[in-house]
Design a protein around this nucleic acid. Sequence first.
DNA 1: CGCATAATTGATGGTTATCAAGACCAGTGG
DNA 2: CCACTGGTCTTGATAACCATCAATTATGCG
Lengths: 245, 245
Amino acid sequence: MSPSSSCLVTKLSHYITLDDGHKDHLARLEKAERAFASGAEVYQAGDVARDMYVVKRGWLFSYTDLPDGRRQIVKIHHPGDIIGFPDVAMKHMTTTLHAAEDVVLCPFPKSSLDEILSTSPRLSALMLSIGLRDQVVFIDLLRVMGRMKAQERVAFMLLDLIARLRITNTSMTDTIRLPLNQSQIGDYLGLTNVYISRTFIRMEEEGLILRRADHLQLLQEQALAEMCDFYDRYSDMDTSWFPEH
Amino acid sequence: MSPSSSCLVTKLSHYITLDDGHKDHLARLEKAERAFASGAEVYQAGDVARDMYVVKRGWLFSYTDLPDGRRQIVKIHHPGDIIGFPDVAMKHMTTTLHAAEDVVLCPFPKSSLDEILSTSPRLSALMLSIGLRDQVVFIDLLRVMGRMKAQERVAFMLLDLIARLRITNTSMTDTIRLPLNQSQIGDYLGLTNVYISRTFIRMEEEGLILRRADHLQLLQEQALAEMCDFYDRYSDMDTSWFPEH
DNA sequence: CGCATAATTGATGGTTATCAAGACCAGTGG
DNA sequence: CCACTGGTCTTGATAACCATCAATTATGCG
């Protein structure tokens, strides 16, 4: 198993440089990769929390249902993302993981963290920082959901998606593929599919976005950023305090 | 400086047993405690992220404003809480910290984490878990804000507050002191002060709660928990995978 | 082509915001 | 002791925003 084939190594190398010892170590943590078809539910809320996953290919999302059937999608996952990290702190999974299209995942056991914490303060600091950065991202989203209207919420979602895709794909332009239907977008933004439709149409009429097939183009990124007061948390991480090794 | 006088030691001892070496170490991280009057803003969004704080006395909250003046309170802090943890991952503070009443705080520099990560895998695991647990709590709140109505949101807030207060104060009954006005509660739940007033009145008429002065009693805790599908994340943490030392 | 899924459109109603006025309350100073 | 003040809570009227329901029109796919 060559270190470079590891999803986790690829993911973490975006933030700090890893020496070969670290790379070997991380690569050994991974189990065999697994594929899931579009629509599959990889795990359910309430399952015992045992593994985390790195996304190798495809989009997924995590959601929870209310007893009466209302649904909230809490996170959209892209290639390179770590899935299930917050559930490490819990005995049971708190969300259900749904494949939005055909996907490939690299599982690794949550007990891996024990090893990382015991052997590499620097990697530990990175894992901690990723967790805390994600918390800031949730706080941003909370502000959006608590205080913003439909159009602002859509703007925020689009900017957040494109900012995250740009981390790993520096050639990203202003156009993204959006493999989610309007009901799913509604469940993410706390709105209905009907109102998502109306909002998209209005934003298109106003020249903010352009839709064709399942692709979406941001025509006025600056205007969109202003209307939802968007900050890119992904490019503002502070790694200066990290331990040396 | 005796170890037992440290806010951080008191806080962390609730989760795992600390030996004297750990206690001494943690106690040395703390700076002198500082008092703030009700209404004071301890730090502002945008300030350089340098310190974290443990709350020794009083309630505070963290908020962010939108450019047009709308406000979202993102976290209510109680004695024992760690404030500013997510901002460790950022170069700048992402929220403003407001004292809801007279408070006392114990600051400690965020570079302390470097030391903890380098010397104690077990403490590192605890810090990581607290961060991840908080992320789960934000996800729960996101679900509330995205999909629940006013009365359900209020129920969730009250249950969350009382669950957290019960961690450190096992003699908590069904009555809490609530040093927040209705505008602040509205800013926390994404509603207006007017609608908070109407919702409290309706919940009191329905026999769910009882208000007197600044105290609030939960008359039907079970019914409140069912209407907002409440889970107590604070008593469901998994520490089984922690390293030994 | 036929089918299922997704998106759109229209009509109506519910929930919450907004605005404005009044009630209550604790503290303050004359 | 009492008017005055500022803050908080309450109440009523109206409007904005979004949900809901139902029907229709794309869209994609075997």
